[in-house]
Structures are given as structure tokens and as C-alpha cells.
């Protein structure tokens, strides 16, 4: 990857969509609570964001910030018991939060596709690649087995799998990690969804393969006009491929705006911290800067600003609850955002 941030501005992928069009997905005040037996904890609190048609939006944050939970909530893939979800998720004029299981089944795989982090375990080991893609097609379209198989072959060809006709009769175990992730992408896109949720799609792969898979995702998204919600902890990948990004911290959105602006001058100390932790090739420091401390668990949330215990700019007002406030084209959840000038990526 090296110094990827330099390319942030020149990267044309997923150029900002016109703001006049209605958003494809509009999430408002999404909260998720779990019952752990004794009490309710809320690992996701009032998450709001929009994704425009064809747009590539990144969600960044450390592990345990609620990124994956946000993705799973959109598709209603949370456990059925001991879990409560509130808020609104307007998708193509339909509130996903109000849909029941059978309604959601028509959305999953058809209108919203999803790719998971672990290609090694996300495919069923005892069915062939072809079976797994074919059944997705047949779950959503009344087509013959033959026709569904043809579509599977086309989908595999589209993700750059050599000899897709052989691949359909192969089992996942005979494919490499990169190939399996291509199969996952083919499976997620075979029904031509309007939105693709990619939850850390490259984290489990070799670095050389990561770039290939990202390029493939962006290329397919651009070609088919599919919007992509890209979840990662790799800011470099976001800089390369996304038009807009959200920073999540401890179950909240703390910053939201165009990638180029945020990278030049982050509005939230946490985003600035993430940027500062990126390795820089040009000036090798003796020690890689990092954010001290760790993400608070849902059991011990700080009462005011959730980032305050780890923030180096903390002041008395940070003791109070923080709101996500507009700042130009962005939103920032920090009461000191107007006073602070935070260091951006060193371009």
C-alpha cells in the first residue's frame, strides 16, 4: 500500500453523487441493544447516514466500534432473540426496519448484497461454488436451473475468475482465499443489487490480493451503478476508493463527510488519531504513533464524549453529551470542532 493517501484527491472512483438525487439508503437514528441476561447494553446508538445511488461510502473505526453491527442491522442479520433494533432505514422508498423476515428475504441478496470478511468460512464447504450462486439466483428469480447456472458462470467471469465453467463445479476448499472472495463478490452481485455491503472484504487476504479485490469491487460498482458501503479499519483503502466516509467510535458516528476534506483536515480528534496511526514511508519515525487506551465496552461508556478518555484535546465541556453537528459538507460529533485545527494526512 505504501503512501496511498497521496492519491486521495486524484482517485476518481465513486465521485460524489449529485446531492439533489434522493439517497438510495437513508439510515436515521439506528440503535441496537442486546440483552446479555441481566441488562440491556446498547452497542449502536443513533447512527444516521445516507448513501446515494452509485456512491462508494466507507465506514472506518477500530474493532468494536459498531461498524459490522451497522452492516448486519441494515440487512436484519442480527440474532432474532435478545436483540432490539430501533430507528429508520429508508431504502428505495421502503423502511427496512419496518419489514418482517419474509419481506427482508426479498431484499437480502436481491436488492442489497453482502460480502463478509472471511472468505474461508463464509462459503458452505459441502456445496459447489455453482450450487451456491445458482441457489441465490433461484431464490429471487423464477428461472430454470440451466438459466441460473448460466448466470452463475457469467457472474464468475465478471469477477475475473479464469475458466468460470470449471469453477462452478468446484468446492470452496479447492480455491485460494482471493478466489473465494471473488466467488463471494460474484454471489453478492449475481442478482444485480443496488447496494453492496462489503464488511472488511480484504482484511483476511494477502496484501497483494487486497488491492486486486478492491479494484475489482470499485470497477464492478462503477460499471453496474451499484452503491457500495465499504467497512474497513484501513484508512488507506478508504482514501483510495471512497467518495465519502463515516468515522465510527464506540457505537456512534463521530464524523461524516467527503473523504478528501476529512483526510486533509479531520474534524474529530478520533479521525485525526486514526490518520496519525497510519505508517508513513517518507519519514520513518522511530515509533509509530497510536491512540492511547482502547475502545470502551458497551458496559462502561463514558457519560459525556465517548472519546474523551483517550483524547489529547479534552476540556471541561467534553464532560457533556456530544451532538453530531453540521460543519460545511460534513458532520462532526465534537464540541471543540470549531476551535481545533487537527493535523490531516501528510500528503
Amino acid at each position: 500500500m505504501g503512501v496511498v493517501l497521496d492519491r486521495a484527491e486524484v482517485s476518481g472512483a465513486g465521485a460524489a453523487a449529485t446531492s439533489s438525487a434522493a439517497p438510495l439508503l437513508s439510515v436515521r437514528d439506528l440503535s441496537v441493544s442486546f440483552n446479555d441476561g441481566d441488562r440491556w447494553i446498547q452497542p449502536l446508538q443513533n447512527v444516521s447516514f445516507d448513501i446515494n445511488p452509485g456512491e462508494v461510502v466507507g465506514i472506518v473505526g477500530e474493532s468494536g466500534c459498531g461498524k459490522s453491527l451497522t452492516a448486519l442491522s441494515i440487512l436484519g442479520l442480527l440474532p432474532l432473540r435478545g436483540c432490539k433494533r430501533t430507528g429508520q432505514m429508508m431504502f428505495e422508498g421502503q423502511d427496512l426496519a419496518a419489514l418482517d423476515e419474509s419481506g427482508m428475504r426479498k431484499v437480502r441478496g436481491r436488492r442489497i448484497g453482502m460480502i463478509f470478511q472471511e472468505p474461508m468460512s463464509a462459503l458452505d464447504p459441502v456445496f459447489t461454488v455453482g450450487d451456491q450462486i445458482t441457489e441465490t439466483v433461484r431464490a429471487h428469480f423464477p428461472v430454470s436451473r440451466q438459466e441460473a447456472r448460466e448466470r452463475a458462470v457469467e457472474a464468475l467471469a465478471a469477477v475475473g475468475i479464469p475458466s468460470p465453467r470449471n469453477c462452478v463445479s468446484m468446492y470452496p476448499m479447492s480455491l485460494s482465499g482471493g478466489m473465494r472472495q471473488r466467488v463471494m463478490i460474484a454471489m453478492a452481485l449475481v442478482c444485480e443489487p443496488r447496494l453492496l455491503i462489503a464488511d472488511e472484504p480484504t482484511t483476511a487476504l494477502d496484501v497483494t490480493i487486497q488491492a486486486q479485490i478492491m479494484d475489482l469491487l470499485i470497477e464492478l460498482g462503477t460499471r453496474t451503478g451499484t452503491a457500495i458501503l465499504f467497512i474497513t479499519h484501513n484508512l488507506g483503502l478508504v482514501a483510495e476508493s471512497c467518495a465519502r466516509m463515516l468515522t465510527m467510535y464506540a457505537g456512534q458516528v463521530v464524523e461524516d463527510g467527503p473523504v478528501a476534506d476529512i483526510l486533509l483536515q479531520p474534524g474529530h480528534p478520533y479521525t485525526a488519531g486514526l490518520l496519525g496511526s497510519l505508517p508513513q514511508v517518507r519519514h520513518r519515525k522511530s515509533k509509530l504513533p497510536s491512540i492511547a487506551g482502547r475502545v470502551p465496552s458497551a458496559y462502561e461508556m463514558p457519560p459525556g464524549c465517548r472519546f474523551a478518555p483517550r483524547c489529547s484535546y479534552v476540556q471541561p465541556p467534553c464532560e457533556t453529551l456530544q451532538a453530531l453537528l453540521a460543519r460545511g459538507a460534513r458532520h462532526v460529533r465534537c464540541c471543540r470542532q470549531d476551535e481545533l485545527t487537527l493535523p490531516g494526512a501528510e500528503a
Partner: peptide, 14 residues
């Protein structure tokens, strides 16, 4: 398992 979750994400019936 994770592959069972994938099935749900694909929109298959229970």
C-alpha cells in the same frame, strides 16, 4: 457458522 449466516444474507428461506 459464518457460512450459514451467508445463506441468510443471500435471502434464502429458513
Amino acid at each position: 457458522s459464518q457460512h450459514y449466516r451467508t445463506l441468510r444474507a443471500k435471502g434464502l428461506s429458513p
